[in-house]
Design a protein around this nucleic acid. Sequence first.
DNA 1: CAGTGAGCGAGCTTCCGCTTGACTT
Length: 849
Amino acid sequence: MSKNLVIVESPAKARTIEGYLGKDFVVKSSYGHVRDLPKDDMAIDIQNGFRPIYEVTPDKRQVISELKKLVKESDVIWLATDDDREGEAISWHLKEALGLKDDTKRIVFHEITKKAIQNAIESPRLIDIDLVNAQQARRVLDRLVGFELSPVLWKKIKSGSSMALSAGRVQSVAVRLIVEREREIDGHNTKSSYKVTAQFIVDNGKILNSELPKNFSTLDEARAFLDKCREAIFTIRNLETKPAKKSPAPPFTTSTLQQEASRKLSFSVLQTMTLAQKLYESGKISYMRTDSISLSQEAIDKAKQAITSDFGEKYVHTRQYKTKSESAQEAHEAIRPTDFSVKTAGGDRNEQRLYDLIWKRSIASQMADAQLERTTATIGISTTPEELIAQGEVIKFDGFLKVYLESTDDEDEESKGMLPPLSIGQVLNLDQMKATQKFSRPAPRYTEASLVKKLEEMGIGRPSTYAPTISTIVKRQYVIKEDRPGKERDFKELILKQGQIQEKTGKENYGSEKAKLFPTNMGLVVNDFLVEYFEGIVDYKFTANVEKEFDEIANGKVGWQDMIQNFYGDFHRNVETVQGATLTGSKPGSRDLGIHPESGKKVSARLGKYGAYVQIGEATDEDKPQFANLKKDQLIESISLDEALDLFSLPREVGFFEDKPMVIGIGKYGPYVKHDDKYVSLSKDDDPYTVTAERAVELIQQKRIENISESIGEFEGKLITTGKGRFGPYVKHDEKYISLPKGEFPAGLTLERAIELIQQKRLTESNKYIREFPENPAVKVVNGMYGPYLAIGKRNIKIPKDVEPASLTLEDCLKLAGDTGGDEKPKAKKGTKAPAKSTVAAKKTAVKK
DNA sequence: CAGTGAGCGAGCTTCCGCTTGACTT
């Protein structure tokens, strides 16, 4: 009986598969990639065919050493990493790192079913070195681009270790999309037109809504039309009923899951992925990082069963969806429940909500089309050839909509409702007709999820990187995700009622944004720089083009080094040129705004180390130039001279309080009110440029209240006091301090609330220590944020999953401490700095062993 | 705790893609 070791990428997958394979098989996981280029060194021998110098990733050393042990004990090794470019490379790296033979068995499967695994075991192949080379080309290209481009930004735009700038094939395009969308919106020319709608009352008091297919471009035209309708007779000229159908959407991929969870549940892409990961680890859903929309036959059969038992057989319509995406690699199934008969996922509320979404979408994908009937009524007007149109929709058979209709949070599909009974020739009674001014809208700003959608459409990035890419561009402060209030505008409306036309002006709010991505000044500057000097890299088609070349490598038609050489020549020359050149034109991120009307000095907006600012005068002037920061949200490229000069109105006196002046300013720690030599920070919602004296007084008084400690009552015979200390506002009772939760202040704190907080704190305290030992008070079993751990003196030791923390004895604890005890190696100090790196990393070829 | 931005230059930073568990009041 031979012993088998199967290596997959994910531990959850390993657990499942082990169950399918029986006793002779041990299934372990590599936890993703095990070797990579070192983090802080180019590690590519450019002179020698771009030879990459890999190392076992530090956090994978243990994985590798454990796998090595198992390899020794096994007769047959099966490399079962994902069936895509990265997966093939992981197998190859495993082979190299574990010292396996070239003929090690490589197996692949696209679904985690017993049958699929057994089939795979029956038809092993060898590692596909061409595919591995395509991955190496991808890796080397990304490293070259990232590690040569980023330093150009440090040199030409801003350097500094905190919030370092960076550029890369994926992130820079993501930023570009956001920047260009913002400019599109900025340049949008709002046009208005007048939309005509009419409401009729039919025999039995029911209402018929209709509209004119065309809009009028001016108020006068709209008025002329309504004028004609004043005395008109309205007749049904035509009634047409057509069957229609709606089909369900395919089951989720990573990207569509992120979009839907964003729209329906308002989750961020990171939140969605974290929840999905939990569902995956607890065995509730299939793998969540996938670009495939197909389901295993087994899953389809199970879905069919579930639909039949829940809704009946006529609701079943199984389908196999095929991806339209060229970049899809389809190593996994679409995202689906592992068991369709399970409707609850356990875990917290949001896990359940996400699971519900996945369940519904997967089930719906295997359900019948909805059958509809659309009725169109054409309404003639006796005084003009124009016609009004009324449309209604009736669901004849709900099909998959049954699953969606159950959901309360589905609002994207507004149903049109039914038309009242009508007949041709019927004369209608006009209740009122309106011509309402409508404004054209610019393209919408990106949300995280719509950005992911766009990137996916362009074939940029992978399911595993969508969420991290967004984190990167936010962390670099190229973009910011936030809400912004809208503006108000007037709109005109003409109303025809009882033969009279009335003109009305209404107000509407427009342009308010929620959780949208906006470019920052830094994002604009870095993007413009890259577009100007490295257009080839931030070109939207760059990834698509290199992907084609990677495919050729994978097909064995092109050598990977040749491909990289071909790319690198021009790219590197360009890097050198831009590095060395004094940039033509003005410094990136600088813009002249005009002349200061009083002093005649030049006014300019620039990007500095601390952000964007406006400067009056030149550094070379006799007297020093004056500076002022731009407000949050103000962009260098769009600030006007007036807005810029307005920034110099700080610090300003807003008024007096208790005979002393209050001064508003902006300091190192943000906007403040200074009064009686004491500073009070403004709140986030206060604009220092417009804040009033009343508000300033309020802030000063609020601060006083917070700082004064006062007793608010007694509890268990001891005083409860509130106050503000080093760590913020607190409640104190029995010599113990409790920090107030965010948003709560001592000022409004009731005795009841204070007692609640004290009891809450006791509860968590009592839950915290799972076990204590009177014999040895230094040893405790503690419930920590990341699970139970053992605290012995100053050391903390994680308690293994298979140990029940509540039943540990003191001896167990000491043993646990002894097992994992002490031999922590001090990290080898990073070598004293190597001689200055030449521009290329040729030197690093010196063997690393 | 309540000012800084240029320039002089050393020394710091960085990519994309695959995975989860390490941080502990």
